[in-house]
């Protein structure tokens, strides 16, 4: 039995850490399971003579193990919150392509990943503004009137800030969505009582759109249909409970109104 030299082992470990960091960043940004698995294995296979790499990715964690000169090394990383960030997915994707095709050092790679993870292209105000645009045009798409448009814009703008603050406390996605939808319904109710807006249902449908787990539902079904059952179940549960949180939130207010 030949043992690895210490520096060799260090290198391979670093490579594994890099692959995990890249994979985790993608997963956290809401990338599909197959894309994360693909990226991780590709990064690992790009260096040295690694015969065997396998990655098992589910939305709540990454498990990688690889074999290098007869020694098995594995790494597990837990992922907690997922918030969709398409820019980061694109950047990590590009990074992994560059890393595989060039002779970038592993340390530089880790630095690059850390840099990407800190990028934030839009401020909270811009996001709230565009969230409000999305909601209000959605309201129009579902035959809302001009007044409904205005009130769902206002509601969505205010609630975006609120949810931002609540989600910083890192309680649970369920509580975030629940409180968000409670406030959406209360605000919409009062705006309509004030005469801004005509159809309560149209205003609420528009304003809850940013909370609705549309992406989670479609990704869940997509994962399941392509054979990633664990991911499908996990994302499906997230979607179901997000929908329940919204339903409870809206429902409680509607009962009282």
């Amino acid at each position: 039995m030949t043992y690895l030299k210490d520096n060799e082992r260090e290198e391979v470990k670093k490579l594994l850490v890099l692959a995990t960091l890249a994979g985790r960043l993608m997963l956290k940004s809401g990338a599909e399971t197959y894309r994360v698995e693909d990226t991780v294995t590709r990064i690992c296979q790009s260096r040295k003579e690694i015969q065997y790499v396998d990655a098992f990715v589910i939305p709540t964690g990454i498990f990688i193990s690889l074999e290098y000169k007869g020694e098995l090394i594995s790494y597990i990383k837990r992922v907690k919150t997922i918030s969709i960030n398409l820019n980061k997915i694109a950047l990590v994707n590009e990074f992994s392509r560059n890393f595989v095709n060039s002779q970038m050092s592993i340390d530089d790679g880790i630095k690059e990943i850390k840099r990407i993870s800190k990028i934030n292209i839009y401020s909270n105000v811009t996001k709230a503004l565009f969230g409000a645009i999305a909601s209000s045009f959605f309201c129009l798409l579902f035959q809302g009137t001009k007044l409904d448009f205005i009130s769902s814009f206002i509601v969505s703008f205010i609630v975006s800030f609120l949810i931002n603050h609540i989600s910083r406390l890192k309680v649970s996605f369920f509580i975030d969505k629940f409180i968000g939808s409670v406030f959406i319904s209360i605000l919409s109710y009062f705006l309509i009582k004030l005469g801004i807006g005509e159809n309560l249902d149209k205003v609420i449908i528009g304003a809850i759109m940013p909370l609705v787990p549309g992406v989670a539902i479609t990704n869940a079904i997509r994962d399941t249909m392509s054979g990633d059952f664990m991911s499908g179940l996990s994302r499906g549960m997230e979607a179901v409970f997000s929908a329940l949180a919204i339903a409870f939130g809206v429902g409680i207010v509607l009962i009282f109104s």
Partner: peptide, 16 residues
């Protein structure tokens, strides 16, 4: 309408 709401969501999802 659909163009505008998709754009809104694209920003919400941090699209480049």
């Amino acid at each position: 309408f659909s163009f505008m709401s998709t754009i809104g969501f694209a920003v919400l999802f941090n699209s480049p």
